[in-house]
Protein backbone atom coordinates (compact mmCIF):
# COMPACT_ATOMS: atom_id res chain seq x y z
CA UNK A 1 0.00 0.00 0.00
CA UNK A 2 2.12 2.84 -1.21
CA UNK A 3 -0.67 4.67 -2.93
CA UNK A 4 0.10 8.11 -1.56
CA UNK A 5 3.78 7.86 -2.37
CA UNK A 6 3.55 6.88 -6.04
CA UNK A 7 5.38 9.50 -8.03
CA UNK A 8 4.66 9.99 -11.69
CA UNK A 9 8.38 9.72 -12.39
CA UNK A 10 7.79 8.32 -15.84
CA UNK A 11 5.70 11.34 -16.74
CA UNK A 12 8.36 13.72 -15.49
CA UNK A 13 10.99 11.81 -17.45
CA UNK A 14 8.85 11.96 -20.58
CA UNK A 15 8.64 15.72 -20.11
CA UNK A 16 12.41 16.03 -19.71
CA UNK A 17 12.98 13.89 -22.79
CA UNK A 18 10.57 16.07 -24.72
CA UNK A 19 12.42 19.22 -23.64
CA UNK A 20 15.73 17.66 -24.66
CA UNK A 21 14.34 16.74 -28.09
CA UNK A 22 12.96 20.24 -28.52
CA UNK A 23 16.31 21.76 -27.64
CA UNK A 24 18.21 19.44 -29.96
CA UNK A 25 15.81 20.47 -32.72
CA UNK A 26 16.62 24.10 -31.87
CA UNK A 27 20.33 23.29 -32.01
CA UNK A 28 19.93 21.90 -35.53
CA UNK A 29 17.98 25.01 -36.57
CA UNK A 30 20.74 27.30 -35.27
CA UNK A 31 23.42 25.35 -37.14
CA UNK A 32 21.29 25.24 -40.29
CA UNK A 33 20.64 28.99 -40.08
CA UNK A 34 24.37 29.73 -39.86
CA UNK A 35 25.09 27.54 -42.89
CA UNK A 36 22.12 28.92 -44.79
CA UNK A 37 23.18 32.52 -44.24
CA UNK A 38 26.84 31.86 -44.96
CA UNK A 39 28.30 32.96 -48.31
CA UNK A 40 29.43 30.36 -50.83
CA UNK A 41 26.39 28.11 -50.50
CA UNK A 42 27.84 25.56 -48.07
CA UNK A 43 24.53 23.73 -47.80
CA UNK A 44 24.72 22.53 -51.36
CA UNK A 45 28.16 21.18 -50.71
CA UNK A 46 26.64 19.17 -47.91
CA UNK A 47 23.65 18.04 -49.91
CA UNK A 48 25.39 17.25 -53.18
CA UNK A 49 29.06 17.10 -52.40
CA UNK A 50 29.94 20.04 -54.63
CA UNK A 51 29.37 23.76 -55.11
CA UNK A 52 27.18 25.01 -57.90
CA UNK A 53 29.40 26.83 -60.31
CA UNK A 54 27.22 27.66 -63.24
CA UNK A 55 23.74 27.86 -64.62
CA UNK A 56 24.34 24.43 -66.01
CA UNK A 57 24.88 23.00 -62.56
CA UNK A 58 21.77 24.78 -61.34
CA UNK A 59 19.70 23.12 -64.04
CA UNK A 60 21.31 19.81 -63.22
CA UNK A 61 20.33 20.17 -59.56
CA UNK A 62 16.74 20.69 -60.48
CA UNK A 63 16.86 17.62 -62.63
CA UNK A 64 18.38 15.72 -59.70
CA UNK A 65 15.62 16.91 -57.40
CA UNK A 66 17.71 18.93 -54.93
CA UNK A 67 15.32 21.23 -53.07
CA UNK A 68 15.58 24.99 -53.53
CA UNK A 69 13.39 26.35 -50.76
CA UNK A 70 15.01 26.76 -47.33
CA UNK A 71 12.60 24.39 -45.60
CA UNK A 72 13.10 21.83 -48.32
CA UNK A 73 16.84 22.15 -47.83
CA UNK A 74 16.46 21.88 -44.06
CA UNK A 75 14.35 18.77 -44.38
CA UNK A 76 16.83 17.18 -46.78
CA UNK A 77 19.78 18.11 -44.58
CA UNK A 78 18.06 16.91 -41.41
CA UNK A 79 16.97 13.68 -43.07
CA UNK A 80 20.53 12.93 -44.12
CA UNK A 81 21.79 13.57 -40.60
CA UNK A 82 19.21 11.20 -39.16
CA UNK A 83 20.70 8.55 -41.43
CA UNK A 84 24.09 9.34 -39.97
CA UNK A 85 25.27 11.23 -43.01
CA UNK A 86 26.98 14.41 -41.81
CA UNK A 87 28.68 14.92 -45.18
CA UNK A 88 32.31 14.53 -46.11
CA UNK A 89 35.22 16.56 -44.91
CA UNK A 90 36.30 19.05 -47.54
CA UNK A 91 39.93 18.68 -46.62
CA UNK A 92 40.26 14.91 -46.37
CA UNK A 93 37.17 13.75 -48.24
CA UNK A 94 36.40 11.30 -45.44
CA UNK A 95 32.87 10.98 -44.03
CA UNK A 96 32.53 13.23 -40.97
CA UNK A 97 30.71 11.00 -38.50
CA UNK A 98 33.23 8.11 -38.26
CA UNK A 99 36.03 10.68 -37.98
CA UNK A 100 34.21 12.39 -35.12
CA UNK A 101 33.71 9.07 -33.36
CA UNK A 102 37.44 8.38 -33.71
CA UNK A 103 38.64 11.67 -32.21
CA UNK A 104 35.64 12.08 -29.91
CA UNK A 105 37.01 9.37 -27.64
CA UNK A 106 40.05 11.53 -26.90
CA UNK A 107 37.96 14.58 -26.12
CA UNK A 108 35.67 12.52 -23.94
CA UNK A 109 38.70 11.23 -22.05
CA UNK A 110 39.97 14.75 -21.64
CA UNK A 111 36.71 16.39 -20.51
CA UNK A 112 35.35 13.59 -18.36
CA UNK A 113 38.81 13.04 -16.93
CA UNK A 114 39.19 16.65 -15.94
CA UNK A 115 35.65 16.66 -14.56
CA UNK A 116 36.56 13.69 -12.37
CA UNK A 117 39.89 15.19 -11.37
CA UNK A 118 38.39 18.54 -10.38
CA UNK A 119 35.66 16.80 -8.41
CA UNK A 120 38.31 14.77 -6.63
CA UNK A 121 40.02 17.99 -5.59
CA UNK A 122 36.94 20.16 -5.09
CA UNK A 123 34.77 17.85 -3.01
CA UNK A 124 37.07 17.41 0.02
CA UNK A 125 37.91 21.13 0.08
CA UNK A 126 34.28 22.19 -0.24
CA UNK A 127 33.01 19.70 2.33
CA UNK A 128 35.73 20.67 4.78
CA UNK A 129 35.04 24.38 4.32
CA UNK A 130 31.29 23.92 4.71
CA UNK A 131 31.53 21.66 7.74
CA UNK A 132 34.04 23.78 9.62
CA UNK A 133 32.76 27.12 8.43
CA UNK A 134 36.26 28.27 7.70
CA UNK A 135 36.45 32.03 7.52
CA UNK A 136 40.15 32.61 8.09
CA UNK A 137 41.26 31.11 4.79
CA UNK A 138 38.18 32.35 2.99
CA UNK A 139 39.53 35.63 1.70
CA UNK A 140 42.72 34.03 0.46
CA UNK A 141 40.77 31.20 -1.17
CA UNK A 142 38.42 33.67 -2.87
CA UNK A 143 41.34 35.63 -4.27
CA UNK A 144 43.06 32.48 -5.53
CA UNK A 145 39.78 31.49 -7.19
CA UNK A 146 39.52 34.87 -8.91
CA UNK A 147 43.10 34.68 -10.17
CA UNK A 148 42.66 31.10 -11.41
CA UNK A 149 39.54 32.03 -13.33
CA UNK A 150 41.41 34.85 -15.07
CA UNK A 151 44.58 32.91 -16.00
CA UNK A 152 44.73 32.32 -19.76
CA UNK A 153 44.56 28.56 -20.24
CA UNK A 154 47.02 28.54 -23.14
CA UNK A 155 49.76 30.24 -21.14
CA UNK A 156 49.08 28.12 -18.05
CA UNK A 157 49.55 25.04 -20.24
CA UNK A 158 53.04 26.20 -21.25
CA UNK A 159 53.96 26.82 -17.61
CA UNK A 160 53.00 23.27 -16.72
CA UNK A 161 54.87 21.86 -19.71
CA UNK A 162 57.92 23.90 -18.80
CA UNK A 163 57.83 22.69 -15.22
CA UNK A 164 57.59 19.11 -16.44
CA UNK A 165 60.56 19.43 -18.75
CA UNK A 166 62.84 21.23 -16.37
CA UNK A 167 61.80 19.74 -13.08
CA UNK A 168 60.95 16.18 -14.07
CA UNK A 169 62.89 15.89 -17.31
CA UNK A 170 59.83 14.75 -19.17
CA UNK A 171 58.32 15.92 -22.38
CA UNK A 172 54.56 15.72 -22.24
CA UNK A 173 54.02 17.52 -25.53
CA UNK A 174 53.99 14.39 -27.64
CA UNK A 175 50.21 14.08 -27.32
CA UNK A 176 48.00 11.34 -26.01
CA UNK A 177 49.17 8.85 -28.59
CA UNK A 178 52.63 8.51 -27.06
CA UNK A 179 51.55 5.57 -24.96
CA UNK A 180 54.77 3.64 -25.46
CA UNK A 181 56.81 6.01 -23.35
CA UNK A 182 57.50 5.64 -19.67
CA UNK A 183 54.89 7.12 -17.35
CA UNK A 184 52.48 7.28 -20.24
CA UNK A 185 49.62 8.03 -17.86
CA UNK A 186 51.32 11.28 -16.94
CA UNK A 187 51.03 12.51 -20.49
CA UNK A 188 47.33 11.97 -20.23
CA UNK A 189 47.11 13.53 -16.81
CA UNK A 190 48.81 16.85 -17.56
CA UNK A 191 46.28 18.18 -20.09
CA UNK A 192 43.47 16.84 -17.94
CA UNK A 193 44.93 18.71 -14.99
CA UNK A 194 45.38 21.93 -16.96
CA UNK A 195 41.83 21.86 -18.29
CA UNK A 196 40.43 21.21 -14.83
CA UNK A 197 42.41 23.87 -12.97
CA UNK A 198 42.27 26.71 -15.41
CA UNK A 199 39.27 28.57 -16.78
CA UNK A 200 37.85 28.65 -13.28
CA UNK A 201 36.25 25.21 -13.34
CA UNK A 202 37.86 24.10 -10.12
CA UNK A 203 37.20 27.31 -8.20
CA UNK A 204 33.60 27.54 -9.37
CA UNK A 205 33.06 23.94 -8.39
CA UNK A 206 34.44 24.53 -4.91
CA UNK A 207 32.36 27.65 -4.50
CA UNK A 208 29.13 26.04 -5.68
CA UNK A 209 29.54 22.92 -3.56
CA UNK A 210 30.57 24.89 -0.48
CA UNK A 211 27.72 27.37 -0.76
CA UNK A 212 25.10 24.71 -1.33
CA UNK A 213 26.34 22.46 1.45
CA UNK A 214 26.61 25.32 3.96
CA UNK A 215 23.13 26.47 3.02
CA UNK A 216 21.74 22.98 3.57
CA UNK A 217 23.65 22.50 6.81
CA UNK A 218 21.92 25.61 8.16
CA UNK A 219 18.47 24.25 7.27
CA UNK A 220 15.98 23.49 10.01
CA UNK A 221 15.78 19.82 9.14
CA UNK A 222 19.50 19.37 9.72
CA UNK A 223 19.04 20.85 13.19
CA UNK A 224 16.27 18.30 13.69
CA UNK A 225 18.61 15.52 12.61
CA UNK A 226 21.21 16.71 15.11
CA UNK A 227 18.57 17.03 17.83
CA UNK A 228 17.53 13.44 17.34
CA UNK A 229 21.09 12.21 17.37
CA UNK A 230 21.13 11.06 13.74
CA UNK A 231 24.12 11.30 11.41
CA UNK A 232 23.99 14.73 9.80
CA UNK A 233 25.61 13.64 6.54
CA UNK A 234 22.86 11.11 5.93
CA UNK A 235 20.29 13.88 6.00
CA UNK A 236 22.37 16.46 4.16
CA UNK A 237 23.56 14.08 1.43
CA UNK A 238 20.78 14.44 -1.12
CA UNK A 239 20.19 18.17 -1.09
CA UNK A 240 23.61 19.26 0.09
CA UNK A 241 25.81 16.96 -1.98
CA UNK A 242 24.19 14.83 -4.66
CA UNK A 243 22.10 17.57 -6.26
CA UNK A 244 24.80 20.28 -6.30
CA UNK A 245 27.44 17.86 -7.58
CA UNK A 246 25.31 16.76 -10.52
CA UNK A 247 24.27 20.36 -11.13
CA UNK A 248 27.82 21.67 -11.37
CA UNK A 249 28.96 18.69 -13.47
CA UNK A 250 26.21 19.27 -15.97
CA UNK A 251 26.75 23.03 -16.00
CA UNK A 252 30.49 22.68 -16.59
CA UNK A 253 30.34 20.37 -19.62
CA UNK A 254 30.01 23.15 -22.25
CA UNK A 255 32.85 25.10 -20.62
CA UNK A 256 35.10 22.06 -20.60
CA UNK A 257 34.32 21.29 -24.23
CA UNK A 258 35.15 24.90 -25.13
CA UNK A 259 38.31 24.78 -23.06
CA UNK A 260 39.24 21.51 -24.77
CA UNK A 261 39.68 23.43 -28.04
CA UNK A 262 42.53 25.40 -26.50
CA UNK A 263 44.04 22.69 -24.31
CA UNK A 264 44.10 20.22 -27.20
CA UNK A 265 45.89 22.86 -29.23
CA UNK A 266 48.51 23.46 -26.55
CA UNK A 267 49.15 19.78 -25.91
CA UNK A 268 48.68 18.46 -29.43
CA UNK A 269 45.87 16.29 -28.15
CA UNK A 270 44.24 14.57 -31.13
CA UNK A 271 40.62 15.27 -30.17
CA UNK A 272 37.56 17.09 -31.41
CA UNK A 273 38.82 20.46 -30.24
CA UNK A 274 41.91 20.22 -32.38
CA UNK A 275 39.82 18.97 -35.25
CA UNK A 276 37.51 21.96 -34.80
CA UNK A 277 40.50 24.28 -34.94
CA UNK A 278 41.79 22.60 -38.09
CA UNK A 279 38.34 22.73 -39.66
CA UNK A 280 37.90 26.42 -38.91
CA UNK A 281 41.36 27.01 -40.33
CA UNK A 282 40.41 25.26 -43.60
CA UNK A 283 36.79 26.45 -43.61
CA UNK A 284 35.89 22.78 -43.54
CA UNK A 285 32.31 23.42 -42.42
CA UNK A 286 30.95 19.86 -42.67
CA UNK A 287 33.44 18.92 -39.95
CA UNK A 288 32.90 21.92 -37.68
CA UNK A 289 29.13 21.57 -38.13
CA UNK A 290 29.33 17.97 -37.04
CA UNK A 291 31.44 18.92 -34.03
CA UNK A 292 28.99 21.64 -32.99
CA UNK A 293 26.08 19.21 -33.22
CA UNK A 294 27.87 16.43 -31.36
CA UNK A 295 29.06 18.83 -28.64
CA UNK A 296 25.56 20.23 -28.19
CA UNK A 297 24.12 16.73 -28.03
CA UNK A 298 26.70 15.87 -25.39
CA UNK A 299 25.76 18.95 -23.33
CA UNK A 300 22.06 18.10 -23.53
CA UNK A 301 22.74 14.51 -22.56
CA UNK A 302 24.62 15.66 -19.45
CA UNK A 303 21.77 18.00 -18.61
CA UNK A 304 19.21 15.24 -19.09
CA UNK A 305 21.12 12.95 -16.73
CA UNK A 306 21.22 15.73 -14.15
CA UNK A 307 17.46 16.20 -14.43
CA UNK A 308 16.92 12.46 -14.05
CA UNK A 309 18.96 12.39 -10.84
CA UNK A 310 17.17 15.48 -9.55
CA UNK A 311 13.75 14.00 -10.27
CA UNK A 312 14.63 10.69 -8.73
CA UNK A 313 15.96 12.32 -5.56
CA UNK A 314 13.62 15.24 -5.01
CA UNK A 315 10.05 14.29 -4.14
CA UNK A 316 8.87 17.80 -5.00
CA UNK A 317 10.21 17.69 -8.55
CA UNK A 318 7.46 15.43 -9.77
CA UNK A 319 4.66 17.61 -8.44
CA UNK A 320 5.50 20.85 -10.14
Amino acid sequence: MKLAAIKPVSRVLARELGITALLLFGVSVVVFAILYLAPGDPLNVLLEGQSPRSELALGMREALGVPRTWYGQYAAWFGKMLQGNFGNSIRTGLPVLPELARVGVYTLTLTLGSLALTLLIAVPIAVHAAAHGGTAGNTAATLVAYVLSAVPVFWFGYIVVYVFIHQFGMFPLISGTAAKQEHAWLYFLVPIFVLGIASGTLSEMIRHLREELSRVLAEDYIRTARAKGAAVWRHAFKEGFLIPVTEIMSAKIPFLLGGAVIVEQVFNWPGMGRMAWQAAQDRDFPVIMGIALVAAAFVRLGNLLQRVVFTAVNPRASRE
Binding site: A38, L257, R300
Partner: peptide, 25 residues
Protein backbone atom coordinates in the same frame (compact mmCIF):
# COMPACT_ATOMS: atom_id res chain seq x y z
CA UNK B 1 14.04 30.20 -21.04
CA UNK B 2 14.19 28.04 -24.15
CA UNK B 3 16.52 30.48 -25.87
CA UNK B 4 18.75 30.51 -22.79
CA UNK B 5 18.97 26.70 -22.69
CA UNK B 6 19.54 26.58 -26.42
CA UNK B 7 22.52 28.93 -26.30
CA UNK B 8 23.88 27.10 -23.25
CA UNK B 9 23.93 23.89 -25.30
CA UNK B 10 26.82 25.07 -27.46
CA UNK B 11 30.32 25.34 -26.12
CA UNK B 12 30.83 28.97 -27.04
CA UNK B 13 34.22 28.52 -28.65
CA UNK B 14 32.83 25.76 -30.88
CA UNK B 15 29.94 27.99 -31.95
CA UNK B 16 32.42 30.76 -32.74
CA UNK B 17 34.59 28.39 -34.79
CA UNK B 18 31.47 27.34 -36.72
CA UNK B 19 30.71 30.97 -37.52
CA UNK B 20 34.33 31.53 -38.50
CA UNK B 21 34.29 28.53 -40.83
CA UNK B 22 30.96 29.46 -42.41
CA UNK B 23 31.62 33.18 -42.73
CA UNK B 24 35.13 34.52 -42.21
CA UNK B 25 37.55 34.96 -39.35
Amino acid sequence: TYFDNLLDSFPRLVLILLVIAAFKP
